[in-house]
Design a protein around this nucleic acid. Structure first.
Length: 224
DNA sequence: TAGGCCATCTGGTCCT
DNA sequence: AGGACCAGATGGCCTA
């Protein structure tokens, strides 16, 4: 493409758009563009017979079509941006009026790292749980003697749902929130759902809690 | 002021 | 044929 001003395009811009200077173009540039388009149409209309009729007949049609296409494209980009905002909302990144919005490329890169981190954590958690319970239970699922609810896995815990402070509050750019607190929350989410901690030994293996805290600290620091 | 980011227009291509 | 998608071009805004 040689330039943004196409010699064959029909005028896509209504007087309203021209007045407002929409489209990222100044009014002057828009007027230049429209004038070129007028010249093009005048040249087309300079023919005889059928050609003249065709040119005259398609001028308005082309304008209308161009407006329609532009509008669709605008809507498509707006939808894309809405989706991007939705992605930003669930990213572990400080949000608020005083925080600069993540750029699109940063959002995508951060999302990728976040997914990789969660996947890696999940794998390691599974391995750790296997190490802790595998030896004593010989492959059986861990069961608390107190009869409390079973352990949660990553992604199932209420503490990791999108609206929870753990999933939305992690910040890798501001230090207002201490990662250790979030890590502790994550570690706790692997215990029972009950409000008070279960006193049984199975639910409170001290070495495992330390393992989990260290694991989460390591992964959180790796991000970005 | 240069550079980054963004919104928009536009023409081409692919798909239904 | 019409719509979706894509990439290039352009100018505006903001920040270091």
């Amino acid at each position: 493409m040689d330039s943004g001003i196409s010699p064959i395009s029909s005028s896509p811009l209504s007087p309203e758009l021209l007045r407002k200077g929409l489209g990222g173009f100044s009014g002057q540039v828009l007027q230049v563009r429209c004038r070129r388009q007028e010249i093009q149409h005048e040249a087309l209309a300079g023919g005889k017979g059928k050609a003249t009729l065709l040119a005259k007949g398609t001028k308005e049609d082309l304008q209308e079509l161009r407006l329609k296409v532009n509008s669709r494209e605008r809507k498509r980009m707006h939808d894309l941006n809405k989706a991007m905002d939705g992605l930003r909302e669930v990213m572990p990144y400080a949000q608020g009026p005083s925080v600069r919005k993540l750029s699109k490329i940063s959002t995508l890169l951060l999302a990728r790292n976040y997914i990789l981190m969660l996947s890696s954590s999940l794998e390691e958690m599974r391995r750790l749980l296997g190490d802790v319970y595998g030896a004593n239970r010989q492959g059986c699922a861990p069961r608390c003697p107190s009869g409390a609810l079973p352990l949660y896995t990553l992604g199932q815990s209420p503490a990791l749902q999108p609206t929870s402070p753990v999933s939305t509050g992690l910040s890798f750019h501001t230090s207002h929130q201490t990662p250790a607190n979030n890590i502790a929350l994550l570690a706790n989410s692997y215990r029972h759902l009950s409000v008070t901690a279960c006193p049984c030994a199975l639910c409170q293996p001290p070495s495992m809690s330390l393992h989990l805290m260290e694991l989460m600290r390591k992964h959180c620091l790796v991000i970005l």
